[in-house]
Every structure is written in structure tokens, then in C-alpha cells.
């Protein structure tokens, strides 16, 4: 099996002639935490949408674990073990925290279409759901309606729900966005913890998070790959420095 769990070849997405992503050749090594960084509008979220099939590419191919998944349905790609989170927190706000995680666990029971069965049959998942909630420090919130939780907790819940699928690879779109120092530290620890035995590709504006978490970094600018390498390599690259000069991101990063 190849060392690279995910590869793209000349991945391109054009919106009405405007190239949001152009000729991106990503190679993500199995087991790495890989960062995708770049200024606002660089095309990072679009890359995520392409990788998880939420958008069809204009050109190019995507290979996950050696299989060409370019034309697969998004839910099928998720079932393969390539699971994403969203830039804006994605939970089910009117369901309880426990129910949110159970949605992630439920598919494996094989009863998702059973409309004649009582939902009490889902209680067999409660122990596993509780264990996942404990992993992200949310056990005390199990019965809370999700929408009533603070933002940082929702992001933690999102990770717990994603973990319920036992994904081989997780894509995290700005997991620390809009968080205070304390929440950021918690999420960084969490990502480090869950990165054991899996690969993570994350979009992150906070460069100190990138520096102490990620094995490898790809820099995107106006849809194209500007640089790739370790944090030290990338942060010394004059083109990268230039791209970040005067941009808000650099300021953000040094907070």
C-alpha cells in the first residue's frame, strides 16, 4: 500500500471561469497531521468540498487509499472513512448532545431505515456515545440540547460525532476558529489525541497551532499551491512570507 493515503492530481475547480482551485497536487502521508493554510479566499474550503465530493471538480482526480473516488457520491466517500467537519460548526441543534453522537454511531447498526422500530433500540449505543463524549469532556452535557451549548463545546461535539464513524482520515476546517485561548488549547490536545492511528488534514489560520501540531504544511494562494514542507521550511519560504505580508492572517497567527 502506498505511503500516501490521499492524493490529488491537477485538481481544479472553476466557478464561472474563476479558478477557485487550480492544479492542486496534494499528497497526504498516512498518519500525518497535515495543514492546509493560506489567506482568506485562497480556496481551502473549496478543496475540502472537492475532496469530500460536496462539489464536483472541473478537472483532476482524487485518490483515497489507492482508489479513484473522483466521481463518488459524498455519503459514499464518508462511508469509506474520509470524513469532514465544516468551517461553521455543524451540529444538529435541536437534538441533545447524546443524540448528536448517536447519529454518527447509528449507521453501523444497520437499522437507519427501520421506521417500524422504536427509537429505544438505539439505547444500545449509549455506552459508546458516552465514552466518546468523555473523550471530548462533554459527558456532563449529554442531555443538553445542543443549540444551548457554548460555541467551543459545539466544536468538540462535532469532533466526537465525527469520531463515532471511526474515520481513517479526518478533514477539519478551522477547528479553532472563533475560540478563546482556553478552548484552543483544549481542541489542540483533542486533535493530538485523536490523531493516533489516523490521518488528519486541517485548515488552520492560527499558525502557532499549526507549528506545534502539524507534520507537514501546504500553502495555498489564489487557488494554487505556493509551497509545501515542514513548518520550518514553509515559514522561511520568501514567497510564503510575501503572501502573508500585510494580510490579517499573519496578525491573527501571532496572537
Amino acid at each position: 500500500m502506498s505511503d500516501f493515503i490521499l492524493e490529488t492530481v491537477d485538481l481544479t475547480k472553476e466557478f464561472k471561469g474563476f479558478a477557485a482551485v487550480s492544479d492542486v497536487n496534494l499528497k497526504i502521508r498516512r498518519g500525518h497531521i497535515h495543514a492546509l493554510i493560506g489567506p482568506n479566499g485562497a480556496g481551502k474550503t473549496t478543496v475540502f468540498n472537492l475532496l469530500t465530493k460536496f462539489l464536483p471538480p472541473t478537472r483532476g482526480t482524487i485518490r483515497f487509499e489507492g482508489k479513484d473516488i473522483t466521481h463518488e457520491a459524498p455519503a459514499a466517500t464518508a462511508r469509506r472513512g474520509l470524513v469532514r467537519s465544516f468551517q461553521i460548526s455543524a451540529t444538529f441543534p435541536h437534538l441533545t448532545v447524546m443524540e448528536n453522537v448517536r447519529i454518527g454511531l447509528q449507521r453501523k447498526l444497520g437499522t437507519a431505515f427501520h421506521f417500524w422500530r422504536s427509537d429505544k433500540s438505539l439505547d444500545v449505543l449509549n455506552d459508546r456515545a458516552m465514552a466518546l463524549l468523555e473523550d471530548v469532556d462533554l459527558a456532563g452535557f449529554a442531555d443538553t440540547v445542543t443549540g444551548e451549548m457554548p460555541y467551543g463545546r459545539k466544536r468538540a461535539l462535532e469532533i466526537a460525532t465525527t469520531l463515532a464513524l471511526e474515520p481513517t482520515m479526518m478533514l477539519l476546517d478551522e477547528p479553532t476558529q472563533g475560540m478563546g485561548q482556553e478552548d484552543i488549547a483544549r481542541v489542540v490536545d483533542l486533535i493530538r489525541k485523536v490523531s493516533a492511528n489516523r490521518t488528519i488534514l486541517m485548515v488552520e489560520h492560527n499558525l502557532s497551532v499549526v507549528a506545534n501540531l502539524c507534520d507537514r504544511i501546504t500553502v495555498l494562494q489564489r487557488g494554487s499551491m505556493l509551497a509545501e514542507g515542514s513548518y520550518d521550511e514553509v515559514s522561511k519560504n520568501p514567497q510564503v512570507l510575501e503572501a502573508y505580508v500585510g494580510s490579517d492572517d499573519m496578525a491573527d497567527a501571532h496572537h
Binding site: A75, F92, S121
Partner: peptide
């Protein structure tokens, strides 16, 4: 019963956040 079934749970999840339901591997159209 349909509302309070495993199927009903997924239906509610789709209503609340369809992209998230897709990203969790559910073929929402079905």
C-alpha cells in the same frame, strides 16, 4: 412510530443539518 424510530432520528438530523448528515455517510435522498 416513524417519528420515534431510528429512521425518524436520521430524518430529524437531515432536517436540522443536511450537509452534516451527508458527511456522516447517510444517503439523504433515500
Amino acid at each position: 412510530r416513524t417519528i420515534h424510530s431510528p429512521f425518524g432520528q436520521i430524518l430529524k438530523a437531515i432536517r436540522e443539518n443536511e450537509p452534516r448528515a451527508i458527511s456522516l455517510g447517510y444517503d439523504v435522498d433515500k
